[in-house]
Simulated scan of single mutants.
Amino acid sequence: MTDSVPDALTPEDLVHLRRCVELAREALEDGDEPFGSLLVDPAGTVRFEDRNRVKHGDATRHPEFEIARWAAEHLTPEERSASVTYTSGEHCAMCSAAHAWVGLGKIVYATSTEQYAAWSAEWRIPPAPIALLPIRSVAPGVPVAGPAPELADEVRALHARRFGIDL
């Protein structure tokens, strides 16, 4: 796995990614895993936002999966493909698949699967029950951009806090 930046991140991308990090912080403060995401239409309007809600046992309650569910119910196929999903952490395999199946457009992420895997290994966190795959391995047709180096330390600190790691 190697990080790549297929498209340069814009100032607008960074505004949306910062909101995702705020949502991740809200999740952590509520006792959940620190992930947050939002869906933005071509006009720049945030259509949907959410954070992780897995603490009660439903491991599918990722914000990226909720975006796919919401978009499938509320947007036309054309609106979905023209929208951009922003997220604090690159989609997992489940969320990447859901994103592709409902025909959502570009994904922009603050931190990558590769970064998360490296932090987990460094902190000796037990592996996830699924393979940590980059979006392109699961949904090769979905355009992606990220990571955002200027947000990496902040996201890493949220994950460290989740696991009780002192940085």
Rank of each mutant, 00 (worst) to 15 (best):
T76D: 05
A128D: 11
A160W: 05
L132T: 09
A145L: 01
R25G: 01
D13K: 03
Q115R: 14
A8V: 03
P11G: 02
V54E: 13
G36T: 10
H62T: 10
D166F: 02
A71D: 03
P77A: 01
V144H: 01
A139K: 09
T87K: 05
W70R: 03
E12T: 14
V102I: 15
R25M: 06
T2N: 14
G164Q: 08
Y109I: 01
A117G: 09
Y116P: 00
R156W: 11
C95D: 10
L14I: 09
M94C: 06
G44V: 10
R18I: 03
D13Q: 06
E122S: 14
F65K: 00
R61A: 15
L9N: 02
G141D: 15
T10P: 14
I125Y: 02
R124G: 05
C95K: 00
R51A: 04
A145I: 04
A157G: 02
F48W: 15
R19A: 07
A160L: 06
V142L: 03
W70I: 03
R51I: 01
P140G: 04
C92R: 10
V108K: 07
D58F: 07
S88E: 09
E29F: 00
F35G: 12
W70G: 09
S37R: 08
G89W: 08
R124H: 11
V21W: 02
E114T: 15
R80S: 10
D58K: 07
K106T: 14
H91T: 06
L23E: 02
E29W: 06
S4G: 05
C92M: 12
E154A: 11
P63M: 01
D41C: 13
S83E: 01
R161V: 02
H16F: 15
T111L: 04
H91V: 02
L17K: 08
A8K: 11
E26D: 15
V40M: 07
Y116S: 14
L75T: 01
K106F: 05
W101G: 00
I165G: 07
T60Y: 13
A121F: 00
A100G: 06
Y86E: 01
G141N: 13
I107M: 11
R53H: 05
L75N: 06
R162E: 15
E66S: 11
L133R: 13
L23V: 03
R47H: 02
R18F: 03
A139P: 13
R47S: 08
I125M: 04
V142E: 00
A93Y: 02
E49K: 04
Y116K: 12
L167I: 10
V144F: 03
L158T: 04
C92H: 09
E122Y: 08
E49V: 01
F35H: 12
E154H: 13
E79R: 11
V84W: 09
R156I: 05
P140M: 06
H99M: 09
I135P: 00
E79Y: 09
A118E: 13
D32G: 14
A152H: 14
N52L: 05
G146F: 08
G36L: 06
Y86T: 00
A160N: 04
G146R: 07
D30P: 02
S112Y: 12
A97R: 15
E150W: 02
E12Q: 15
V15Q: 00
A8R: 13
S88Q: 04
P126G: 02
P34G: 02
E26M: 04
D153Y: 01
T113N: 06
E150D: 09
V155L: 12
P126C: 05
F163W: 15
V138F: 07
A8S: 14
S112L: 12
A139W: 04
P77R: 04
L104V: 08
